[in-house]
Design a protein around this nucleic acid. Structure first.
Lengths: 335, 335
DNA sequence: AAATTATGTGCAATCGTTTGCGCATAACAT
DNA sequence: ATGTTATGCGCAAACGATTGCACATAATTT
């Protein structure tokens, strides 16, 4: 069913069909209604591809490319939910691809996005990614780029992040307030911007509360398996930690599991705080205190920024930086 | 950068450019190489939209529409991962939309998919969905449809499901083997096909082991909150259950939490088995015995079936039914 | 009755590609 | 010198939609 089919059947030109379907007043009422009726009955639907091609010169195609490192992580899934929600509400569609934390895939995805003429790209970098030629190429072509969470500091691009610094600062301050004096920090290596901010929040929380930084308590560790390897060593130190802050809940759960295996009582002897607030935070015993990362809100904001860039309410070369507030969710203080 | 630009610069026709770029032998070597060099230097990329429009008559567009009820559930996220993986590997792209368990959104999504001429649709029904006009419309238009997990039995469509019956049967048999005699069943209402199969697996496991079915042990309950409401009542029964089977891990965790709150010891006094094997199954104490649902494999198979339908290796009206095997993952028998 | 103005349609170009066909020019055989 | 074949390239139509412009015909004004 194309306009041509309708035109042929009704003995008019496709131009007339086009105008009739868009309620143009320059078509007589009878014809217009006849055409509309025919179209409805044979449930005609405009071919989106043709429309896109036609409009691609003036107005950009309302499709947003989204790159996500993995689907199966709660945080990314919730960001995706926020993106989908906001985009749909504002009349955009999304095409989603997964980098699987690989630079090569990320690169391919960007190329495909350029070819399919997405109006903009929302992305959280793969862990692998240390060169940015693919992102730069997008920018050079004039495709607006919005990073979320794992931003690319080397690029002058828009970004939506959570308040890593304050989130961590509040969390660590809370541990101190609850009596911890030797708080361990488990984080990713300091390459990613996000890592530095959280680490600074940790340090400042210590300083503000008159505690000093002990390098032996700072570990590069961002997953459960590593946490379960490292934690027993930590707990056997002469002066063992009495509190742990981890940059994500997976790691925090590894710590929890390890210390419980060593028969320490949480939270009486050891207190633990994570980051994200994923499903697991309420399924362990005791439940996990954690910093809520509000992925949905991050996703929504990212779309808002992108559409601003696309529709020109933000200047094209402007790099908007938005910060989404975090909340500390306190749990498991009593059974 | 379009072919026209290249053609103008090099003083040839676009047809020549097109042929040169596709390595047609009908273009002289020098011209071909000159054109290719020029294209490479100015990094020309073919406009995918135009290509799609051109090819839409003969060969269908290599884009698969995917509908997922929610992103933030482990199982759906893993199916999505499998879909993305297989589709990408076979040269297809995916456009993903989330129904948010709503029929209205599902309907809109299908309409958009039709307009954007996806070559096929992979979908797991929203819980809301009780009429199928939108799916029928897709079928009528000749768009292949593959259901996963939550299939639509009323439609003669392809489907990929896990082995719900055997998975449940093995799980319940295992509970019996471990000494349980009064096993409660928490499942969704019997509307969905998947619910019936699991329930049958439960019943048959009882019968095969000489146990009788006690209706009071069968509950409509498929989420944590409900499980935490219902379970205390169950445990106060004169003859309380000594085992629980739940149709998903969320529910199983609700049961676990409830019985532990009542100071029953798991697994000594009560044994629990879930379904899915999501992240949480290893973050509770004791860890959860559960049926592994293998979402990635389901996703891959769904794509395989769909591409078969699209490319004609399967007859278009054929309804392929695939079953992915489940595994019982035993955990938490000892600390 | 002639000139003007509405009113309703169709023609054709356009978006960026692909591709069947035809037209040159050159090389070969007769 | 004429006919045949090969080689290299361009024209134009097609995919499905939109839209400025021209052109009818009818209704109005002068």
């Amino acid at each position: 069913m194309t306009m041509k089919d309708i035109a042929r059947q009704l003995g008019v030109s496709v131009a007339t069909v086009s105008r009739a379907l868009s309620d143009s007043p320059s078509i007589s009422r009878e014809r217009r209604e006849a055409i509309q009726a025919y179209a409805r009955e044979h449930n005609y639907m405009p071919n989106a591809i043709a429309e896109q091609l036609r409009h691609s010169r003036n107005s950009p195609v309302k499709v947003i490319g989204v790159i996500v490192p993995e689907f199966v992580h709660y945080y990314f899934a919730s960001v995706l939910t926020g993106i989908e929600d906001e985009a749909t509400a504002r009349g955009y569609r999304i095409v989603v691809a997964r980098s699987a934390e690989s630079y090569d895939r990320e690169r391919d995805i960007c190329a495909r996005f350029m070819q399919s003429k997405v109006c903009g790209v929302i992305v959280s970098q793969a862990k692998d990614t240390v060169q940015y030629d693919h992102f730069e190429r997008l920018q050079a072509t004039g495709v607006p780029l919005v990073f979320y969470d794992r931003i690319c500091p080397a690029l002058n691009a828009s970004r939506v992040v959570v308040d890593d610094y304050m989130g961590t600062l509040k969390a660590v301050s809370y541990l101190i307030e609850r009596g911890c004096r030797r708080i361990a920090y488990y984080g990713t290596d300091m390459n990613m911007e996000i890592a530095k901010n959280r680490y600074n929040g940790y340090k400042d929380a210590l300083y503000k509360n008159g505690l000093s930084l002990d390098e032996t308590l700072v570990q590069v560790c961002d997953n459960r398996a590593d946490a379960e390897r490292i934690t027993p060593r930590m707990m056997r130190m002469a002066e063992r930690p009495d509190g742990f802050f981890a940059v994500n809940d997976d790691t925090a759960l590894g710590i929890l599991n390890s210390v419980q295996r060593l028969h320490f009582v949480v939270p009486d002897e050891v207190q633990i705080c994570g980051f994200t607030n994923d499903w697991r935070a309420t399924s362990c015993e005791p439940m996990l205190t954690t910093v809520e990362q509000r992925g949905m809100e991050v996703g929504r904001q990212a779309v808002d920024v992108l559409i601003g860039l696309v529709e020109g309410s933000l200047p094209a070369d402007h790099a908007e930086k938005r910060v989404v507030k975090t909340n500390l969710i306190v749990r498991g203080t009593t059974r």
